[in-house]
């Protein structure tokens, strides 16, 4: 029964792709829908063991960051009044990272279904794209131009409405 075991353990263990173990408070872990789903499933089965969740797509340094974010947001979860402070924290949080880390963090947020972190990353990426030329975007994000010259000319001249 779910009720009999749900109180048994308040912590879960998350394993990163490079086999490091992180002991995480359940409340923090449930910021990620993926982790929350795993915990719920295990508890429904009525296990009394320590719950171990392996994440094959997230390295330990990225997992550290995601968990840092989750911890902060779990603290504020019940308290809407501190929104402003949290927003400030969010902003400072992402500013520290280079683009490679930002990429991994975005992928991890998507994979772990941490919606608010994903939105935060997307907004941050969008903000950093603003006012850049196409060349600059490609340079910053290290993206290869895979259009043919003809395609590029067509797209360049398309009007804003012509979204096909």
């Amino acid at each position: 029964m779910a009720s009999s075991s749900s109180s048994s353990l308040s912590r879960v263990v998350v394993k990163s792709s490079d086999n490091n173990l992180f002991v995480v408070n359940k409340k923090v872990a449930s910021q990620s829908q993926l982790l929350k789903q795993c915990i719920d499933n295990m508890e429904e089965k009525g296990t009394n063991d320590v719950i171990l969740i392996p994440l094959s797509n997230v390295t330990s340094n990225i997992l550290t960051l995601v968990l840092e974010y989750c911890e902060k947001h779990a603290d504020f979860a019940d308290d809407d009044n501190n929104n402003q402070e949290l927003k400030q924290w969010d902003h400072e949080f992402l500013k520290k990272f280079d683009y490679a880390t930002l990429n991994s963090l975005t992928m991890a947020a998507d994979y772990m279904v941490t919606k608010s972190l994903l939105n935060l990353c997307c907004q941050f990426i969008a903000d950093s794209i603003k006012d850049l030329t196409v060349q600059q975007i490609r340079q910053i994000f290290d993206i290869k131009n895979d259009f043919t010259p003809q395609e590029e000319a067509d797209i360049k001249n398309e009007n804003a409405w012509a979204f096909r």
């Binding site: 997307c122 969008a126 993206i143």
Partner: peptide
């Protein structure tokens, strides 16, 4: 969702969509 954040900025979105396939 990144593009969605640029929805109001037509030129930026246009550039965004020109970046890669």
């Amino acid at each position: 969702s990144i593009a969605g954040c640029l929805e109001e900025y037509a030129d930026d979105l246009h550039n965004f969509r020109r970046t890669c396939k």
